[in-house]
Design a protein around this nucleic acid. Structure first.
Lengths: 252, 252
DNA sequence: AGTGGTTTTGCACGAATTTGCACAATTTAT
DNA sequence: ATAAATTGTGCAAATTCGTGCAAAACCACT
């Protein structure tokens, strides 16, 4: 990777996340922290970012506000997305759901990762076009406009042709007894089918989803392998899920 | 290998990979790094690329992106898009292709139009989410990243389940004898199949496509109903197409 | 063919750049 | 207040760069 590309990458992370953490970049790119720190120093010299202890922030506060405006950019979703992305191993076939958290996963895939990403979300697919080395399989069907995902018989049929290693599922409700649920009937079927076709399923469980239930049940919690939760969730809240045998992955 | 060929090769690598690494090129072509460096220096002098330590990057990534974005908004494409949109009647099943002109069609659909839009372009599908009353059917498959469309066996199979009233086809070449052509092998098959499944096919024929030919043939001109061209095209240029019995629709 | 001039190419060598490590100083967190 | 993390600096190794130079290839013309 060329030096100027690396700087572009850093600026990309900055505009995506609204912040840069030197240590994290060095891990993502497999370079020493010294090198990243040097880059940050130079970029700060050019006025492209503001150096702070531990990393960097956008040069002008206006940029930060812009980045945070959409709800895609909440810290929790970024953290969950990054954590989910880090679970993917080279060569795996991964199913990404629709929704803003899934978009964050797509954005945080290691730029050198070689994998196949299956998605029924046109939004996620468009995001993945930027990634140089992942193969993308798009599931077609009737478009459910609210969340820009394919649903219906055609989608189910296409999904049943796939066998994936892992599925990152987005939901609107996670409840110890009611299980996983969402707000659309067709979408619930699609999510259930995706879950069936993946060896492991992890649920993207931002704070407000825990303990909630939506009208349409996707599957009981026994069908999934674990939850990816934000760091701030208390152990107490997670207890019922742990006792169901789910592995809990904390994002950081 | 001739010097100018080598430079072409370097530019080819640059546009494919988005980067050039001097050492790698010298190994691939079995030449000294000095020679490659000289080439890079000269190409940079001509403004065809941007020299960086270790290799080279596109002349100006910002400019390239900007041009790509700007590309959607040429007057001709807007006019063609608006004209194509006006041809759609309520209740029809319409196939929209990928490409920037198709996006313009999507944007110019009457907001009260009730119709079904079939597309294999994730980009076009996302655009149509804004439209309140059209039903969208997304064709899935392997994602061809260059144009963000689904291709491959899965796409062909899904398309064969459809019967549409009209298909608006985008191409890169329209030639009286060579017929319709495009730059990707798989994409040509998808376009051909879409054409077969539509009662009528109109080709979105911006000025520069007329008389041009690309490597992969989609279909002869006899397979389509007509061309939608921009207003400024001379009658002379259109004569060969009219004599083939194609109806010519002028955008305005 | 031969010849003189130009271009291209590879090599040598010193300069510049990049990168990772050690270490001491500083900041942050517990 | 003490421990942990982060930072800047100096330094050495590796890579890359530019320049000068000579051999080879190519070209135009006789």
């Amino acid at each position: 990777m060329l030096t100027s590309q690396r700087k572009q990458y850093i600026l990309g992370v900055l505009s995506r996340d609204g912040q840069v953490i030197a240590k994290r970049i060095s891990q993502e790119l497999d370079l020493s922290e010294d090198t990243i720190r040097r880059d940050l120093r130079e970029l700060a010299q050019e006025g492209l970012l503001q150096r702070v202890h531990g990393g960097a922030l956008p040069a002008s506060p206006a940029v930060a506000n812009f980045a945070k405006r959409e709800d895609i950019y909440t810290d929790a979703k970024i953290a969950i997305g990054r954590t989910a992305a880090s679970l993917i191993k080279p060569g795996q076939v991964v199913i990404l759901d629709g929704g803003t958290t899934a978009v964050q996963i797509a954005r945080h895939l290691s730029p050198t990762l070689q994998a196949t990403i299956v998605t029924h979300s046109a939004r996620t697919a468009v995001e993945l076009v930027e990634h140089p080395s992942v193969e993308v399989v798009l599931i077609g069907g009737r478009l459910f406009k609210h969340s820009i995902v394919s649903v219906g018989a055609a989608a189910i049929e296409a999904i049943n042709r796939i066998r994936a290693d892992v599925y990152f599922m987005g939901v609107t409700g996670i409840h110890p007894e009611a299980g996983l649920s969402t707000g659309d009937y067709e979408e619930a079927y699609v999510k259930y089918t995706l879950c069936q076709r993946a060896a492991e399923t992890f649920v993207l469980a931002s704070q407000e989803k825990l303990g909630a239930a939506s009208p349409y049940v996707i599957a009981p919690l026994s069908e999934v392998s674990g939850l990816i939760v934000e760091a701030s969730v208390t152990n107490e809240v997670l207890l019922p899920y742990e006792s169901l045998g789910l592995s809990i992955i904390r994002a950081n």
